[in-house]
Design a binder for these strands. Structure first.
Length: 809
DNA sequence: GACCTGCTGCGGCGTG
């Protein structure tokens, strides 16, 4: 046994901000426990748990070979930093261990070396673990595994990557009779206990949940206009507040300016360069469609203190873990409390320093959101991330992975996966269906050999024998399905990033557009690649990217309703609500400020017809469904067609007929009876299910997304997945993957449970109907949103001008 | 008193 005192001395010599938390962690680790760490960045959580691993290794009589510790991170960009820190501590603490790295970036040479001899510790991603599982000697690779640490577990738990992690752990736990110590590291989420339970499984009963009681002070300040009138009623960009941002940038060494969407990042970067040309070279941009090399450069430059400001989307949420900054500005509502909190924590890393975040509202109602965020963070209220259950696509992929690798016996494998949270309730029938699916393709596809991937050996072992199948499987592993994109590169070959097919298809050769902060001219479009050159022009469109929508979380919704009720009673707490007072009072005069037990309904007639607005404040997703449901239920009673628009505050249904809303309110429009049937009938469920199915088909290996660098086109992908979708619908309606697609639409897209509780709340609410002759601050943004879909920007401003005339003022 | 919307993440092969 070697002496552990130098290691402890090394550790103690550092000036930790959270020494007690760290000590509690490594002591729990040495006591053989599993657990969950809840700690903000900068609390030394990596070292806390890594010290446990190091001390344990030092206490053993000789240096063991083979893989003992796996450290999982959701972001491969972080992996290198973590590995370096871990290797360094090994060296300095006197432990003769190698810390390895295994992600998609790892070189072939390195992989070969690892295959021969795994390092004692490996920093990796969930996907790379599964790639290792697809190798013949997987069992040998993981045989000596003692510990698995999953960093940023909150990022994984709510998605299919989390399910993959659960499956990998189930496999590991089975290999070794000694329990695998399992640790989760998580930022603050509402369901910490559940998060621990999902990852730890059976080990949860004896689990340590250790929180860094840093009591980090966070100061939130809204950037308020002098006059609320200068804040638009509608809008999302916020660039009119740019003059207030520049002094903040000047006063700090490095600032992260978070925007909600990629195009907004492009706009802000451009405007910032326009307004403050002296910052050229000191401001950079970072979002998910830019070349990773560029992003890496930005991250490094930020770290080196060379940048004054990075305009970014949440692509930098995790990536700056090792690159602390001085100041954070959030442009527009972050739509969730936990996300805002995490971003705030990026600033003020020095011991004892206060984190500060500026909130920059892009339209007036966002000031309510600002007030709510402040309170929620003070009260430590955070959203939960709910683990997925029974994702059949992920399970099917995993089974083929095992069959490509060591092979598996159904009985033991079923036992393993049932020990995971995700598949604990998997029925025997579902299990047989999965086995049938991987061996024959299932009842409707059994005529095609390519879906019969797995064969059964005489001894009952399930294996993949075809090299082609194995290769294609390895090429399709993982649960992230991305849309095919157009690569943008210079004629010389330098790669810039990606835009969407539809954006570039609207351009002609010679047209210019803004991207990556440059004005580019389209030279050629071929093979999913747009070749461009720099242009001196100053005009051109900015690409927009489709992507996930962030919708108010229910935590935010509840608090927003309360704030509006407060306002109705004349209570305006805090600078934001004070600032908003005149506007809300105006709204109260024009219409009404609803209490939490009331639902406000506004009706306006214009030359377009009858507009009806409702404000459940449930977030855009729920509003979309509610609006469709309402439109459907009304149209059942008489032939009316509606157009629908929504935002996070409420929704609009518009008909060209002259109607009165009271005539319909009697119809029990919000009844929970036949709810699901009506929803199915009202939303174009199959369209959405088809889209979900495309992902499921890719994950489960039904469609092949092409060879690396040569992705198939969107059309092709869409076509093959819709074809299979149709086959299943017609010939195999009980297909579990089809069912999963429908279920995902309901539970993930529409948040079924939230929809139900929203409806039951609405049913108890008193309905207040206001008939108005002019738009209110509540309905105006929704009105504009609907128009935007039909008009170009210029026509839109004309149209808005016309609205001013029409409604008079 | 009035414009610009929609995030992130991973992994793999063979050939020239």
């Amino acid at each position: 046994m070697s002496d552990i005192s130098p290691a402890l001395a090394w550790f103690k010599s550092k000036e930790w901000t959270a020494f007690e938390f760290q000590q509690a962690t490594w002591q729990a680790y040495l006591a053989g426990k599993s657990g969950l760490l809840n700690a903000p960045t900068g609390s030394g959580k990596t070292y806390a748990i890594w010290l446990g691993c190091v001390l344990e290794a030092l206490q053993s009589p000789k240096v063991e070979t083979g893989l003992q510790v796996i450290w999982v991170t959701p972001l491969r960009a972080l992996a290198k930093d973590i590995r370096n820190a871990m290797q360094l501590t090994c060296n300095e603490m006197g432990l003769n261990w190698e810390v390895g790295l295994r992600t998609g970036d790892t070189s072939t040479k390195e992989r070969a070396a690892q295959k021969k001899q795994m390092p004692q510790a490996l920093v990796t991603t969930p996907e790379s673990i599964h790639v290792l599982l697809s190798q013949k000697d997987a069992a040998k690779t993981f045989k000596k595994l003692k510990t698995v640490v999953v960093d940023e577990w909150h990022e994984l738990i709510g998605g299919k990557r989390g399910v993959q992690m659960e499956l990998a752990l189930a496999y590991f736990r089975h290999l070794n009779p000694k329990p695998i110590k399992t640790w989760a590291i998580s930022a603050t989420i509402g369901n910490l206990q559940e998060a621990a339970q999902v990852l730890l499984g059976d080990l949860y009963s004896d689990c340590a949940i250790i929180r860094a009681n840093l009591n980090k002070k966070i100061v939130i300040e809204s950037i308020l206009p002098d006059d609320v009138k200068s804040l638009p009623w509608s809008g999302h960009l916020g660039t009119n507040m740019l003059p207030s941002v520049i002094p903040i940038l000047e006063a700090n060494n490095s600032t992260l300016l978070f925007t909600n969407v990629r195009s907004q990042t492009e706009v802000w970067y451009q405007k910032l360069m326009d307004k403050a040309p002296e910052l050229a070279g000191l401001v950079a941009m970072h979002h998910g469609s830019l070349d990773t090399k560029v992003r890496q450069w930005v991250e490094d430059a930020l770290h080196a203190g060379k940048l004054k400001c990075v305009v970014c989307t949440s692509s930098l949420d995790l990536g700056v873990d090792f690159r602390p900054v001085d100041m954070v500005i959030q442009v527009g509502g972050p739509k969730g409390i936990a996300r805002f909190f995490q971003r705030a924590g990026r600033s003020g890393h020095q011991p004892g320093a206060t984190s500060k975040i500026y909130f920059l509202p892009t339209h007036s109602l966002e000031l309510i959101e600002a007030a709510v965020l402040k309170e929620a963070i003070a009260n430590k209220q955070f959203e939960s991330r709910n683990p997925l259950k029974k994702s059949i696509d992920v399970l099917v992929q995993y089974l083929v992975t095992l069959a490509v690798g060591p092979g598996f016996y159904p009985e033991t494998t079923l036992e393993q996966i049932r020990q995971s949270h995700a598949y604990a309730k998997l029925t025997d029938q579902e299990w047989s269906w999965c086995l049938e699916f991987i061996t024959t393709g299932g009842s409707s596809l059994s005529a095609y050999d390519e879906y019969a991937k797995v064969e059964i050996e005489p001894d009952g072992r399930y294996v993949v024998k075809s090299r082609k199948t194995a290769m294609r499987h390895r090429l399709s592993m993982g649960t992230i399905v991305s849309d095919p994109v157009i690569k943008v590169r210079y004629a010389g070959g330098k790669y810039i990033g990606t835009v969407e097919e539809y954006f570039i298809s609207h351009l002609k050769i010679g047209d210019t557009f803004w991207f990556a902060g440059r004005n580019l001219e389209l030279v050629r479009l071929k093979d999913m690649t747009a070749t461009v050159r720099n242009s001196k022009k100053k005009t051109g469109p900015i690409p927009r990217w489709g992507g996930g929508k962030a919708s108010f979380t229910s935590l935010l919704s509840d608090a927003m309703r309360q704030k509006i009720e407060d306002a109705s009673k004349g209570v305006f707490e805090g600078p934001e609500m004070q600032k908003l007072k005149p506007l809300l009072e105006k709204h109260a005069k024009l219409s009404a400020l609803p209490h939490t037990n009331q639902l406000l309904v506004e009706q306006i007639k214009s030359d377009e017809g009858t507009h009806i607005y409702m404000y459940p404040l449930e977030g855009k997703y729920i509003h979309d469904v509610l609006a469709a449901l309402l439109a459907y239920r009304i149209s059942v009673s008489q032939p009316i067609s509606f157009s629908i628009a929504s935002n996070d505050y409420g929704f609009e249904i518009l008909t060209d007929l002259d109607i009165e809303i009271e005539d319909f309110l009697e119809l029990d429009l919000f009844s929970e009876e036949n709810l699901m049937d009506d929803i199915y009938a009202s939303i174009n469920n199959t369209e959405m299910a088809k889209r979900k199915f495309r992902d499921i088909a890719a994950i489960s290996g039904l469609i092949f997304q092409g060879y690396p660098g040569k992705n198939v086109t969107n059309k092709h992908l869409q076509a093959s997945s819709s074809m299979i979708f149709k086959v299943f619908q017609d010939y195999d309606p009980e297909n579990l993957l089809l069912k999963q697609a429908n279920e995902e639409v309901l539970s993930l897209q529409f948040e079924k449970s939230r929809l139900k509780s929203a409806l039951s709340r609405i049913n108890q609410q008193e309905i207040i109907v206001k008939k108005l002759s002019q738009p209110t601050p509540f309905c105006f943004p929704i009105m504009v949103d609907r128009l935007r879909e039909r008009y170009t920007n210029e026509l839109l401003s004309e149209r808005i001008a016309k609205m001013q005339l029409e409604f008079g003022d």
